[in-house]
Design a protein around this nucleic acid. Sequence first.
DNA 1: CGGGTTTCTATTTTCGTGAA
DNA 2: TTCACGAAAATAGAAACCCG
Length: 352
Amino acid sequence: MTPIGPSEEYIRIPEFDNYLSPWMTTDCNYQLDLSPEGMYNSSYDPFALPGSTGAPSSYLTPETLDVGWARSGSVSTTKTSNDSPVTEFSYLEADADANPVPDLVPSSSEPAPAVQYDNKRGMDSSERPSKRNCSQAIGTDWGFPTAAPATKSKESRSLAPCKSTKIKVEGKSKIGKKSRDKHRPSLSSTSSSQSGNSSHKVQLRTASRKPKQNGKDSGSSPAAEDKDEDDLLTPNERRARHSHNLVEKQYRNRLNQQFESLLAVLPADGNRSFSGSGGPKTKPRDVKGSVAGVEGDDRRLSKAEVLDMARQRIVKLESECNRLQSERMELAANRGFARVANPGIAGAPLAA
DNA sequence: CGGGTTTCTATTTTCGTGAA
DNA sequence: TTCACGAAAATAGAAACCCG
């Protein structure tokens, strides 16, 4: 078979082009050169962008390519578009004054409501059967060995039980959990769900909490202890500690931004199966009606879920691209064969 | 009995800190 | 600058409870 040179006329078969063109708008977003010059060029690699290393750079969408790391105390990302709204994550305290951001969360200065413990049912929790152990943990399809160090063991938790779970808001709220959830302000209400290519309503789960208020409390509270400890520090040490706290906060913010960016480029309908080898142990809420990936989906994804979704996406895209590549080669071979066998196909227009 | 509300607890996230 | 860790707080889901 004679290779076709760049200047040589060739037969263009519309059916092929029609068949191939949708590929160019698929997730792969590859710029396939369907001309014989391109298709017969042995060194042609449609998966490598000019100047790239040849890696499947389509994984880097304009979104991800444009993600700025916002180092050195800047606010938010370097994106010029407004598609990465300032969230709790993107708030960098260092420039808080110079770059005020809307307060998206309830004011943390509001005094916490007085609380009291009310063991309504009069049953000691130790007598109660462990619900989560038998049904909540089991029955999830996440067989995911979560990052063990990150999660506290049951034993350690029992030593320091979560206060928030042992208390009840004074004035006995008449609003149940479902109702409370309705009224709960979204902590990242404008997060990546609105970013560029995605119609995500899915958001990254957040758990904003008040920073330590050293010395603001009285009594023998932990804050007061911290105050005492703080008094033992020299001014330099205090400054260093505070500075390090800010740096660490920025580091966490950057991590969260990247998680949001990652989430933003995942398909909105995408692969919410949470199956396989990874993921948090919580059961996806869509089993209970708030269906993930459909209209009205407002669920918050954990970081582990985002990572697992990204992993699934990568695997899927790699598989898809391999399939397209082999199909393209097959078509190219057939096309060349057709051209040689039928140099003047009736009705086939010649390309200019 | 069914549905709404409350409570409990596992999980996840944030924060502060020290070390590499 | 990054990572790891513990503590604290937030979140989510299920069971228990309440009530018409």
